[in-house]
Nucleic acid binder design. Structure first.
Lengths: 330, 330
DNA sequence: CTGTTAGCGCTTTCAC
DNA sequence: GTGAAAGCGCTAACAG
């Protein structure tokens, strides 16, 4: 396959002139430029981006790292990232952390293939993140907070979110409120649980959840855990779920058992994913600002790349969005 | 930032020995190896993947190219691709074609940054695809068919899909069947329209759609076009939409106008996206095999990379999935 | 305006 | 087992 050398030979000029011409450097005469372009066309020359990046020691691209490229994916968040990345003339690529040690994510985090990364993948270890980040490679964490140089965390006020939601339920007259969650290994889910507990305690209610947090935070597990709760009998009047995915799984379980939502049991989720407004009943949930968070993440990467000082921690508030899955008790 | 050279110096060995050690080449003595590893750790050495790929002239990664990273995204399809890619030990990354000429997609298609690409982005020109593909860089097209060397198309039988769906509607007693579509510039949407038309014609019905195909194939446009159809008055008894996204937009328009689906008008989509089963009424639609298509795409890339001959065209059948958005006329 | 040249950081042959 | 050296394809000083 043709390289810059071949083009130079064919055009009868030097390699550097070809490089200049290809990069639209003004100092190449238009005659030479034409000759070069023609040769490139004829040879179907394709530049080797790796060589170019290597030489320039800059990739002008940032990576967004998710747990699963095929997984549920915050479109709005990605949109926020994408908008500011493109406006800066940078490229954006997504890769996933499936495969653990040998995942594409690790490769991009540790091999200088991009100039910055935005991480949304809890299975990437803190160690990797701390070791990979440097001045020329800032990392933004969207799924945890970590105090380390050149890494900044953008959090959502998870605790306040569930706290507020639980109080709302209490205001609606609920007294038996359960919380269904996957296994929270610290991080955002621990915060969510804490907000729930503190609200119940504050109002003199029993905030110990009857179900041990267990398993993943996905639809299937929401379904299973809800089934378990149903099997135990003596259903609470309201259930808060660690996220919308689990809540939607729960909705399925209730439907199967002929248990009406919200007539028989009220349900509230977290995240406000797109599906939330489409399921029946439409899911009341705790919204987190997605676009803004994504946009800020990208923005901060560029700030850091430009050598500006930035805080290493940001927190966004949540908002309760009321739809049809909660009943007012009388 | 430390390079292999620094590690060599610190460990007191040559560069090549470091390279061998880092790549787990057996011929390095375990004593030297230990020394090297320790030096690497201390310097927080991170390999430059670009340099390595450049030298090896292989990236062992393939790209999946979509119109919009934030867009509606076939999770199942990506899963299929991901599963086989990972099983081959290759990396997978996703990038988008927003930005047209200067998009990340173009960069990955034309700059030898990956070893193969799977394209799901109609706004990439045929010319780019034809010019970029070569023996060492096969391209799989999931969104169109193109006859060119080292590019293979994996199609869904779109025409048969809409044909079958239209006949189903006719069997249910519908006689006035409209088709709502975005502007089909050839490709799959032209096929979908054709299937609809041929079915109506076959049964002696008028298959000219009243609405000129126009605009995008997204929810918003489905909404707008449905509004236009409603404004025209004299609604058909059934509407086929070019895809589920548009159909879901249409559902919204009907809801706003108090027009019942399926009581007043039947609706059918195409694709069977995840949302289809969650909207109310649950959307009847034409399903295409997603996982299988993705898996085949990745599989073929590797076949081609290994120099094996493969067909350059594949077609998958569709399947009608019946839910609640179509009424039987009496 | 164009050419010469010195690398970017790594892998890999070949010699020892 | 280890090292010297060539070179992947490109960019960008520098000289002319």
């Amino acid at each position: 396959m043709a390289t810059i050398k071949d083009v130079a030979k064919m055009a009868g000029v030097s390699i550097s002139t070809v490089s200049y011409a290809l990069n639209n450097n003004a100092k190449v005469s238009s005659k030479t430029r034409k000759k070069i372009m023609e040769a490139a066309r004829q040879l179907n020359y394709q530049k080797n981006g790796l060589a170019s990046d290597l030489k320039r020691s800059s990739t002008r691209t940032i990576a967004i790292i998710v747990t699963d490229l095929a997984g549920p994916y915050y479109a709005e968040l990605v949109k926020g990232i994408q908008d500011v990345t493109l406006s800066k003339g940078y490229d954006l690529l997504a890769c996933s952390s499936v495969g653990e040690e040998s995942s594409t994510a690790i490769k991009f985090l540790t091999e200088k293939r991009v100039d910055g990364a935005i991480v949304l993948a809890h299975n990437i270890s803190e160690e990797i993140i701390a070791m990979s980040s440097r001045k020329e490679f800032p990392i933004i964490l969207l799924d945890r907070v970590l105090d380390s140089e050149y890494v900044v965390s953008i959090e959502v006020d998870n605790e306040e979110g569930t706290h507020r939601a639980a109080e709302y339920l209490i205001e609606q007259g609920h007294r038996e409120i359960a919380y269904i969650s996957g296994k929270a290994i610290g991080g955002i889910h621990a915060m969510r649980l804490r907000g729930y507990e503190s609200a119940l305690r504050k109002h003199g209610l029993d905030g110990r959840s009857r179900l041990h947090p267990f398993g993943k935070f996905d639809r299937d597990n929401g379904y299973s855990m809800t089934k378990m709760l149903i099997a135990q009998g003596n259903l609470p009047t309201a259930i808060m779920y660690a996220n919308d995915e689990m809540a939607i799984g729960g909705l399925g379980a209730f439907r199967e058992h002929g248990i009406g939502v919200p007539e028989d049991v009220s349900v509230i989720g977290f995240d406000d994913i797109e599906l939330a407004q489409y399921v029946r009943p439409a899911l009341s949930t705790i919204m987190q600002p997605k676009y803004e968070r994504g946009a800020l993440a990208a923005h901060l990467i560029f700030q850091m790349l430009e050598g500006k000082e930035v805080d290493n921690y940001y927190k966004f508030p949540t908002k309760l969005v009321l739809r049809d899955s909660v009943k007012k008790m009388t």
